[in-house]
C-alpha cells in the first residue's frame, strides 16, 4: 500500500518534451528533401504566358532549363543591351552554345533515362519568335526533341 502512494507522489505533472526534437527533426528532414536549391539565379525577366493544356514536369533531375528574356540587372543591360537574351545555367549565352549545354546535362543522366530528358523553355511572353526559333533549331540539331514550353494556368477567358 505504501508503495503505491509513493509512486504517485513521484509522478511528474509536466508533459515530457523529450520527443519534441524528434518531431521537429522529422519535419526538418521533410523540408530538406523537398527543397530544390536553385542552381542558377535567373538574370532575365521571365513572365511566362498563360495556357490551358498544361503538363506537369516530373523528375527535376531530368529537366534542363533555358531562359529567354530581357536582362534584369542594370549592369547587364549596360553590357548586353536590353534586347532579349538567352540564359543557360547562370550566364548569358548565344544559340550556338546550346548543343554543348544540352550535352553537358545529358552525360550526367544514366543512359536508360536519357530519352526522357526534357528541356524547359522558360520564355517571357513579350519576346519575339525569332530568338525562340533559333533556340528550337539548335535543340533539334542537338537531338533534344522533348521540349516543354513553360506556362502558367490561364485565369479567366481568352481575350
Amino acid at each position: 500500500m505504501s508503495k503505491f502512494s509513493k509512486k504517485r507522489e513521484k509522478a511528474d505533472p509536466a508533459v515530457s518534451t523529450a520527443s519534441l526534437p524528434d518531431i521537429i527533426f522529422m519535419l526538418l528532414f521533410f523540408f530538406m528533401m523537398v527543397t530544390v536549391l536553385r542552381d542558377a539565379t535567373v538574370k532575365v525577366e521571365v513572365i511566362v504566358p498563360e495556357a490551358t493544356e498544361l503538363t506537369k514536369l516530373e523528375k527535376k533531375s531530368l529537366v534542363n532549363y533555358i531562359y529567354i528574356g530581357k536582362p534584369k540587372e542594370k549592369a547587364d543591360i549596360a553590357r548586353y543591351g536590353s534586347a532579349p537574351r538567352i540564359q543557360l545555367g547562370d550566364k548569358f549565352a548565344e544559340p550556338s552554345d546550346i548543343p554543348l549545354y544540352v550535352e553537358q546535362h545529358r552525360i550526367t543522366i544514366p543512359e536508360v533515362q536519357r530519352p526522357q530528358i526534357t528541356t524547359s523553355l522558360r520564355v517571357d511572353g513579350n519576346v519575339t519568335m525569332g530568338i525562340v526559333s533559333d533556340v528550337k533549331e539548335q535543340l533539334r540539331k542537338s537531338n533534344q526533341l522533348k521540349v516543354n514550353y513553360s506556362a502558367r494556368p490561364r485565369q479567366g477567358d481568352l481575350r
Binding site: L57, K136, K146, S150, A151
Partner: peptide, 12 residues
C-alpha cells in the same frame, strides 16, 4: 511546380 505545354520537335 513547373508546368507547360509539352511538345516534340521534329528531328533535324
Amino acid at each position: 511546380v513547373d508546368k507547360g505545354i509539352l511538345v516534340r520537335l521534329p528531328p533535324w
